[in-house]
């Protein structure tokens, strides 16, 4: 295993494949340990992990909390209300507060792209981006990759179709970076109004039709469509969206027979995904994604804790 070269995990763009592979290997070993019931470790004993969430989240926050506790860290959850976030100075005030608390590992979710990067310049702690605006969500992409690898054996040459609101999706961006780096063939499938400008320059193939975009795919990754996108005029209605871009059995039929179905959650059933597909015990790996989330976050915390500036206090 090669030493991870950064203090923080802010983005997957630019992270070299060997480091990604290492993280996935370590996460895999944590996944096995977690399943075996030997969950308690002490890598992070004496370390303080703060979950700093400026946006509501249940799944990601809980997953980091569990990961930190399983590694023996002291875990504190801080939720900051949206109203005080808008007074920007709060972010840097928060940074100095955290420094005073001698926080070692800081998990940040924020509605603004680049907010964790800004914090990382001001705090002594290692910063883990738990989702920033429409920029990146690195641990989600890592857990997606681990889930895929467990089902397909390897990421090499897989066809992965990422479908839906790519424009507003930090999950999509992190997945595009990671999967492209690991030699997957990544497709995005969405109406043009939900695609970022020049998305093809991020190394993906672009489709506007599910039946061609999903053809012979190994992995079908659905994205959440937020209701306010309808109000913004990007999509005329939920029923039209579901008809043309929602995943149902008929659309899934053009993918490979053993294609898996993924979703980062929380799902809008009947909007981007049909319940029959989401709950299909054979095709859907949505539950396993959550399980891998804890393992991946343990691996990330473990690896970043090796590069901390401050020595652990016993």
């Amino acid at each position: 295993m090669i030493a991870y070269p950064h203090r923080h995990l802010l983005a997957l763009q630019g992270l070299e494949p060997p480091y990604i592979a290492d993280l996935l290997d370590l996460a895999e070993s944590y996944a096995l340990l977690n399943r075996s019931g030997k969950t308690q470790r002490d890598q992070l004993k004496g370390r303080t992990l703060i979950n700093l969430f400026f946006e509501d989240s249940t799944r990601t926050r809980t997953s980091f909390e569990l990961a930190g506790k399983r590694l023996g860290a002291d875990v504190i959850n801080m939720s900051v209300s949206q109203s005080s976030v808008n007074k920007g100075e709060t972010l840097l005030d928060t940074a100095s507060t955290l420094n005073a608390m001698h926080c070692d590992l800081l998990v940040v979710r924020h509605a603004q792209s680049g907010a964790p990067a800004l914090l990382s310049q001001k705090v002594d702690a290692a910063v883990i981006n738990a989702g920033d605006g429409t920029h990146e969500h690195p641990t989600q992409a890592l857990l997606d990759a681990l889930t895929i690898r467990r089902h397909k054996g390897s990421l090499e040459n897989l066809v992965v179709a990422i479908c839906g609101d790519v424009l507003h999706s930090r999950v999509a961006r992190s997945n595009i970076h990671l999967l492209s780096a690991m030699n997957c063939r990544v497709r995005v499938v969405a109406p043009p109004t939900l695609l970022p400008a020049e998305v093809e320059r991020m190394g993906v193939e672009v489709f506007h039709d599910m039946k061609t975009g999903l053809r012979d795919a190994d992995v079908v990754m659905m994205l959440r469509l937020q209701k306010e996108r309808m109000a913004g005029g990007l999509v005329p209605s939920a029923r039209e969206y579901f008809r043309f871009f929602g995943l149902d059995a008929a659309k899934l039929a053009v993918a490979k027979p053993d294609a898996i179905v993924m979703h980062p959650g929380p799902m809008n059933r009947g909007v981007e995904i049909d319940s029959a597909v989401a709950d299909d015990p054979v095709r859907s790996v949505i539950g396993e994604q959550v399980e891998m989330g804890v393992a991946v976050r343990m691996a990330v915390l473990d690896i970043l804790s090796r590069n901390l500036r401050r020595n652990a206090r016993p």
């Binding site: 680049g114 605006g133 920029h135 961006r173 970022p196 320059r201």
Partner: peptide
Amino acid sequence: TEGEMASRMGLAGIH
């Protein structure tokens, strides 16, 4: 400015 750079950074673009 709208384009690859803004898309990668997750920033809303102006064409």
